[in-house]
Computed example of a mutant assay.
Amino acid sequence: MAIKQYMRQLYEGLWPNNIVLKQTLALCPTLAVTSSATNGLGMGLATLVVIMLSNVSISCIRSWVTPQVRLPVFTLIIAALVTLVDQAMNAWVHDLHKILGLFIPLIVTNCAIFGRAESFASKNAPVPSLVDGLATGIGFTFALVLLGASREIVGQGTLFSHASLLLGPHFTWLEVTLLPNYHGFLPAILPSGGFFFLGLLIVGYRLVEQVRVKRKLSASAMSMESTS
Results as ranks from 00 to 15, higher is better:
1 M>S: 14
2 A>I: 08
2 A>T: 01
2 A>P: 00
5 Q>I: 06
6 Y>N: 02
9 Q>D: 03
11 Y>D: 05
11 Y>I: 11
12 E>L: 15
16 P>T: 11
16 P>H: 02
16 P>F: 06
18 N>W: 07
19 I>M: 00
21 L>V: 08
26 A>M: 01
29 P>V: 01
31 L>T: 01
33 V>G: 00
39 N>F: 03
40 G>T: 03
41 L>V: 02
48 L>I: 07
49 V>M: 12
51 I>M: 08
59 S>Q: 03
64 W>L: 15
66 T>P: 06
69 V>A: 12
70 R>A: 12
73 V>P: 13
75 T>A: 15
76 L>M: 14
80 A>C: 07
83 T>L: 15
86 D>I: 11
93 V>L: 08
101 G>R: 10
113 I>R: 13
113 I>V: 15
116 R>C: 07
116 R>T: 12
118 E>W: 13
127 V>Q: 06
132 D>P: 02
132 D>Y: 04
133 G>C: 11
134 L>G: 05
136 T>N: 08
139 G>F: 00
140 F>A: 11
141 T>N: 12
144 L>H: 10
150 S>K: 12
151 R>M: 01
155 G>P: 02
159 L>C: 05
168 G>A: 13
170 H>G: 14
173 W>V: 09
174 L>R: 01
175 E>N: 14
176 V>Y: 11
185 F>K: 00
186 L>D: 10
187 P>C: 00
187 P>T: 00
190 L>F: 05
198 L>D: 00
198 L>A: 08
201 L>H: 11
213 V>A: 10
213 V>S: 09
215 R>C: 12
216 K>M: 13
216 K>H: 10
218 S>E: 15
224 M>P: 01
227 T>A: 10
